[in-house]
Amino acid sequence: TLFEALYDYEARTEDDLSFHKGEKFQILNSSEGDWWEVRSLTTGETGYIPSPYLA
């Protein structure tokens, strides 16, 4: 399933992933509550992002 970022986000820890509004992601793991592990389709990087920032 693909999701798109609604807002920009700046990583706060080394496990987080910074991203920009409009960036698209593949969800790798959504079992961690509000923090999902994703792969950016723009950069190929993986990390955790806050799920409320996605649509």
Rank of each mutant, 00 (worst) to 15 (best):
G44Y: 04
K24P: 03
S30M: 12
S30P: 05
S18W: 05
K21D: 03
L17M: 13
T1Y: 11
I27P: 01
I27E: 15
A55M: 10
P52G: 15
Y53M: 12
V38Y: 00
G44H: 04
W35L: 07
G47N: 01
T46S: 06
T42D: 08
H20V: 12
E23L: 01
D8W: 04
K21T: 11
I27K: 05
E23S: 03
P50Q: 07
I27T: 04
D34A: 08
T46L: 14
T13L: 09
Y9C: 07
E45V: 09
L2F: 13
T46A: 04
T1K: 11
E10F: 13
E32F: 15
E4I: 13
S30G: 09
Y9P: 01
Y7G: 04
G33A: 12
V38D: 00
W35K: 08
A5E: 04
E4K: 02
D15A: 12
K24D: 01
Y9L: 14
R12Y: 07
I27Y: 04
Y48W: 14
I49K: 15
G22K: 02
F19P: 02
L28K: 14
S18I: 08
G47E: 02
L41N: 02
F3D: 14
E14T: 11
E23P: 01
A55S: 14
H20L: 10
E10N: 08
Y9S: 02
S51M: 05
P50H: 12
F25R: 14
D16E: 15
R39C: 05
K24A: 05
Y7S: 06
E32Y: 12
I27W: 02
L41V: 08
G22H: 03
A11E: 00
F3P: 01
L2V: 13
R12C: 13
P50L: 08
R39L: 08
T42C: 10
S31Q: 09
V38T: 00
P52K: 15
W36K: 00
T13M: 10
Y9H: 05
D15Y: 14
F19N: 00
T13Q: 14
L6D: 07
E23A: 03
K24F: 11
L54V: 08
F3K: 02
V38N: 00
I27V: 12
E23Q: 05
A55K: 12
Y9N: 02
T43F: 13
A11H: 03
N29H: 11
A55P: 12
S51Q: 04
A55Y: 05
K21W: 04
K24N: 05
I27G: 01
Y48I: 08
L54G: 08
F19V: 08
E45Q: 13
